[in-house]
């Protein structure tokens, strides 16, 4: 379970997250929607400790992420994150990309890591691209590789930060399909997304972010189907 309690985050004088409280239960899929610059990405980074926070607390399975003694490297194994820019390691083949962290972090043997990587790459439909360098892949394929790379660590949580925003429109579908598959398998996920239809379809809950706070949160039918706040209405109008 991820417990976000009154989190505040600033960059210098600019307060970007202004007191966010939200829980994500095991097996739940929560989507975060909202305008550009509203602090969605920043909040995700705070969850796995890639960014620090100024106030409040974030706990993952009871572990205080931002406490002094917390071993973030260890915590991050359990939280996969997929970015808008897929960040393939260009110097490694698809297979090596996925094997690297299991080898270095989980200390798996070469054959164990390879077995895990092959399994995850097949899972995302890249079983035939193992020996290819990422530079030869389409954006959609690279993004699916990034998903496999995160899954190879057997995370308990997956965070997606606009995983399809940088893709050509015709490649969005294949990545959404992969994410949908994960949701169906019961993965606990937080999705920052501009794909409102997709969010409505896969999410248990949707949170609308506005100016660093959660303006509205509830079931997709409520927040997307029947929004109460004028800001939510206006945002949905602008993206649908």
């Amino acid at each position: 379970m991820i417990e976000i309690q009154n989190v505040h985050k600033s960059f210098g004088d600019l307060e970007v997250v202004k007191g966010v409280t939200m829980n994500v239960n095991k097996g739940e899929v929560v989507s975060i929607i909202g305008g550009s610059g509203s602090g969605k990405s920043t909040l995700l980074m705070c969850i796995n400790g890639l960014e620090t926070i100024q106030r409040g607390s974030i706990r993952v399975d009871g572990i205080e992420v931002h406490a002094k003694g917390t071993n973030l490297d260890k915590l991050r194994r359990r939280i996969g994150i997929v970015f808008q820019q897929w960040n393939a390691f260009a110097h490694l083949t698809v297979l090596e990309n996925v094997m690297l962290a299991p080898r270095l972090v989980l200390k798996l043997s070469r054959s164990e890591a390879e077995a895990v990587a092959v399994k995850q790459l097949k899972h995302v439909g890249l079983g035939d691209k193992l020996k290819v360098y990422p530079g030869r892949l389409s954006g959609g394929q690279q993004q699916r590789m990034a998903i496999a790379r995160a899954l190879a660590m057997s995370p308990d949580y997956m965070l997606f930060d606009e995983a399809t925003s940088a893709l050509d429109p015709q490649l969005v579908g294949e990545v959404l399909d992969t994410m949908r598959l994960l949701a169906e398998e019961g993965m606990t996920m937080i999705l920052v997304t501009h794909e409102i239809k997709f969010a409505k379809e896969v999410s248990d809950r949707v949170a609308f972010f506005h100016k660093g706070v959660i303006h509205e949160i509830g079931s997709p039918d409520q927040v997307i189907g029947n929004p109460q706040k004028p800001e939510t209405v206006q945002f949905l109008k602008s993206v649908l």
Partner: peptide
Amino acid sequence: VPETQTRAARSLGMTSFQAYTRVVIPQ
């Protein structure tokens, strides 16, 4: 070498030394 490469490596649980030596330096 984009900063996001280090970010991606760290988010997989690599230490900053591992990210530097295994992801940044080769590129």
